[in-house]
Structure formats: C-alpha cells, structure tokens
C-alpha cells in the first residue's frame, strides 16, 4: 500500500470526506451508546437539544467555545508554520496567572486602561513561555513537541505552588484559589442573566485578526512558506528562524488570552481546575478547522456544543458524559484520516 498525491482535489474530496468523517464518528458513538443501554437517536437528540435547544443552552455552548477559540487559534497559527505547540494549556494558565496578579487589586486603574493592560501582560507571558521552546528548537534542534508538552506539567505545578503560596486567597477558607478580580478587571456579561461574556467577542475579533494576518500580511505569507518548505523559504531569503520566533510569540499570546478570558469573564478567580484541557482540545479544534482561523470559530462551537450537550444529555439519559470526549476524539481521528484521503489516494499493490 502506498499514498499518491491527488493532482487536483475535487469538491467531492474536500467536502465529501469530512462529511464522511462526521458520519463515521456518529456511527461509532452510536455503538457506544447502544452498549450503554440507551437509544442513540434519543441520545443524539438530547445532545443537540442540550447544546442548541434553547437560548440558554446555545449561550452556554458559546461560553464554552470561547477559550477553545483562543487555544484553537494558537494551535492553528503554530501548526501552519510547523511549530508543534502542544503547550497551549501551559500558556493558558500563565495568562490566567497574569490576570490575577494584575487584576485583583494590585493595579488600580479604570477598566478601559486596566483590561488592555492585563491583556497585554497575559499575552506577553504566554508568548515568552513559548519562545523558550522555539529558541531551543532553532538553536539546538530540541523537539518542541516534547518541551511544550512537558511545560504543561511544569506550569501546572508552578500554578499549584502559587495557589498554595503567594497568590492564595487569605479569605478562601484554605482552598487553593486566588482572590476574585476587581470589578475594573472584569469582562462584562453580554446578556444579563447569562454567562456569555465579552471574552467571546474578543475571541471572534482575534479570529478575524488572525485570519487577516495569515491571508493578507507578509508575516502570514512567511509563516505559510516556512511551514510548507523551510529549505525553499530559507533559499528565497525568508528569515526562517525569526519567522518561527514570531509564530511562537503570536501562538503563545493567543493561548494566554484563553486564560485571561476565563478568569476575567467567567470564573473571576484562578483555581487549578480553570481549564479542563482547553489547551489540548484546542489541537482538535484547529485540526477540525484545517488550520483556518475563521474555521476555528465554527469548529470550537461544534466541539463545545458536543461537550455542553453531552453534559445535559447525561443528566437525563444516564449515559456518561464521557461520550463527549470519545466523540471529539473520534471526530479528530476520522477528520485527520479524511484530510489525508482528500489530498492523497491509496494505491494497493
């Protein structure tokens, strides 16, 4: 068996295979639902209803999608330049740390100044966190998959240390959590009485800006060139190492915004369970979007919908909400296979 590139992927290939991937995912999940002893049709209906069946449900989905848009963008940008950033989780937490460091009263500024200041600080922290692995890759050829992945655990332990130490809320009854951010550092709710907040608008704006960078600017061009063929890029005079470093800064900054938005818009303070793996799920989101920044918004809403809908479903149908993770994982695997099949054909010999 071997793979041959398709000279011209047709519409059938670029749309048909992803549609087939979703179909395979649904069939696979249905089998698991059957094993769990429930009716797949009613379970999927409950998932859809739970994710988008009401204004409340859909806003919950968008709330859950917000951090995934940021981490998905971070991954999409980095993967486009073939910088394998698996560390969006760590960058998210560093962004959250900067938010509580500056936002819990240490800096007294009106909201119009404080929120941009916190955002910039969070992005800088996330950017610098990814710059380290990028420099190690460029200088010494250290595999960034390993360094960024391991940084996730280091940063989580570091945050744990802060939560038990300098950042611990003295009035928190001993829980490992920080103080709440002050009002001026809070991202307001979009709709009264709903959890959806301005972080979602910020995420959409980030997606548009990222799309413009990738499609319209010299930097985006350089990143794509470096990702496709670094040797040819270097020959043409594109400063490959500098481009990789800029990519790292952009990617780390975007991931850090996820942490900022979760703390300032939703949770109010930092705890160790701020992110149930948003950094890792961002990889799925980016891959499902085929690394397109605008596609990231759609795929983040899709993935968030599965999670939110599965939570609602599990309460009424008694099927564990783990089915959501299985579905997302299956969707990723089938989508990767579909992307490959849309670009290559398999020859049996």
């Amino acid at each position: 068996m071997r793979l041959e590139p398709r000279p011209r992927p047709t519409v059938l290939h670029t749309l048909g295979y992803p549609a087939g991937a979703i179909a395979v995912t649904v069939v696979f999940a249905s089998m698991l639902v059957l094993i769990a002893g429930a009716n797949p049709f009613s379970v999927f209906w409950l998932v859809i209803k739970g994710a988008a069946g009401s204004q409340f449900a859909f806003m919950e989905t968008l709330t859950r999608a917000t951090p995934l848009i940021f981490t998905g963008l971070a991954v999409a940008v980095a993967f486009r330049a073939r910088l394998w950033n698996i560390g969006a989780e760590a960058q998210l937490y560093i962004g959250a740390v900067m938010t509580v460091v500056l936002g819990t009263g240490a800096v007294a500024l009106p909201a119009v100044a404080l929120i941009p200041l916190i955002m910039v600080a969070a992005m800088l922290a996330g950017a610098l966190l990814l710059l380290g692995p990028a420099v190690l890759k460029i200088r010494f050829g250290v595999d960034e998959v390993v360094t960024t992945l391991l940084l996730n655990f280091i940063v989580l332990l570091f945050v744990s240390m802060l939560l038990e130490g300098v950042l611990k809320d003295p009035t928190g009854l001993g829980w490992p959590q920080t103080k709440k951010v002050i009002d001026a550092a809070e991202l307001p709710r979009l709709v009264k009485g709903r959890r959806l907040h301005w972080g979602f608008v910020l995420a959409i704006a980030s997606a548009v800006v990222t799309w413009v960078i990738m499609k319209k600017t010299a930097l985006g061009y350089e990143m794509r060139a470096v990702g496709h063929n670094p040797e040819a890029a270097r020959f043409a005079g594109i400063p490959v190492n500098r481009v990789l470093m800029k990519t790292a800064l952009l990617s780390g900054g975007l991931a850090a915004l996820a942490g900022f938005s979760e703390v300032a818009g939703l949770k109010g303070n930092l705890t160790l369970d701020l992110s149930p793996g948003f950094g890792y799920t961002g990889i799925v989101v980016a891959m499902l979007a085929m690394l397109n920044p605008l596609g990231v918004v759609l795929s983040a809403v899709f993935v968030a919908g599965i999670f939110v809908g599965a939570d609602a479903m599990s309460r009424s149908a008694g099927v564990p909400s783990y089915i959501a993770q299985v579905m997302v994982a299956a969707a990723l695997l089938t989508m990767v296979a579909a992307i490959m099949l849309s670009r290559f054909r398999i020859r049996w010999r």
């Binding site: 794509r224 060139a225 496709h228 063929n229 040797e231 040819a232 890029a233 020959f235």
Partner: peptide
C-alpha cells in the same frame, strides 16, 4: 522541488 519552489503554494 526542494529549494526552488514551494510546491504546495
């Protein structure tokens, strides 16, 4: 292919 052109662009 290796250095002259970026095939996928």
């Amino acid at each position: 292919h290796a250095t002259g052109m970026i095939d996928d662009m």
